[in-house]
Design a protein around this nucleic acid. Structure first.
Ligand SMILES: [Zn+2]
Ligand SMILES: [Zn+2]
Ligand SMILES: [Zn+2]
Ligand SMILES: [Zn+2]
Lengths: 141, 141
DNA sequence: ATGGACCCTGGAGCCACTACAGAGTCAACG
DNA sequence: CGTTGACTCTGTAGTGGCTCCAGGGTCCAT
């Protein structure tokens, strides 16, 4: 099952990760450096594919680079306890839930201010609510 | 009602905007430069307070600097039609709604993977789902 | 006159990439 | 064997929206 090594372009296609991003991951020590061809081309193997898919999946789930680094370190030690991973997922879930709550408040505010009835800026509800928050619109003072 | 001019610290306290951020806004041309004292201190007046509160409110609503720039330009022309503002709010609302939808999917995925039942990495559902997405946990292969 | 709170500028750093420029490599085709 | 053209290399700079710092200068009350 040991396949031929492939270039960075192949790795990019197989993972959906940008070539520049792959090189960036190597530079920051997230992806182990592969061997090189005589001319200096990176030559990747299956293990790089697995590794990068792990990273990609973590990023898609919104984990930070540092979190993924920690998760990768953990994944390398099959006998270690996995509380760390558990805690990281719980923390990140909290973060995501907080973000959703914030954005939902934002959405409601934006919904309340859209569809201004005035036709010029002076009567515009949108400009008005940016100028004096809380005051919806005051057509005549 | 013309009050004494105040320093950058006063403006910061009255708006909740960081001093460094106020200087940054001036540098990128978002906040008009105030007059200076003989020693070079910035001296702000009420109009700067209004202006910066507008910016602050826009940022709190998640608008980009460029959008706020456009909204400020609009706010300066009371006789202009306000369709532009309307369109910007609608676009931004779309953006926020899309973000909420994305995060909700994320949240559900994170909920599904947390509380791994295994005690070591080898059986960990979390590490497992990062390694092979879709496969929940496969205790024995 | 002095202390201490405040302010100044310019530049670097943050995150996670992305976009180049200018050069070199590789494999296939003729 | 030579040429083409797709691919890859390094290094640097830019993105957004700040935030932090060093090393100085100013202001005002005592
Ligand atoms: Zn997180
Ligand atoms: Zn309007
Ligand atoms: Zn927006
Ligand atoms: Zn586990």
């Amino acid at each position: 099952m040991t396949l031929q090594p492939f270039n960075i372009g192949g790795l990019s296609r197989q993972t959906g990760v940008n070539i520049e991003t792959i090189r960036y991951y190597e530079k920051i020590g997230l992806l182990p450096p592969p061997t090189r061809s005589q001319g200096g081309f990176r030559q990747y193997e299956d293990r790089h594919l697995q590794w990068l898919r792990f990273i990609r999946r973590g990023r898609d789930l919104g984990f930070s680079i540092d979190s993924i680094r920690a998760l990768l370190t953990l994944a390398e030690r099959p006998d270690a306890p996995c509380e760390g991973a558990d805690r990281m997922v719980a923390l990140h879930l909290d973060e995501v839930e907080r973000k959703i709550a914030d954005l939902t408040l934002l959405r409601d505010e934006l919904r309340a201010m859209k569809n201004c009835c005035g036709q010029v800026v002076a009567q515009c509800q949108i400009i008005g609510s940016l100028t004096a928050p809380g005051a919806a619109q005051q057509d005549t003072i």
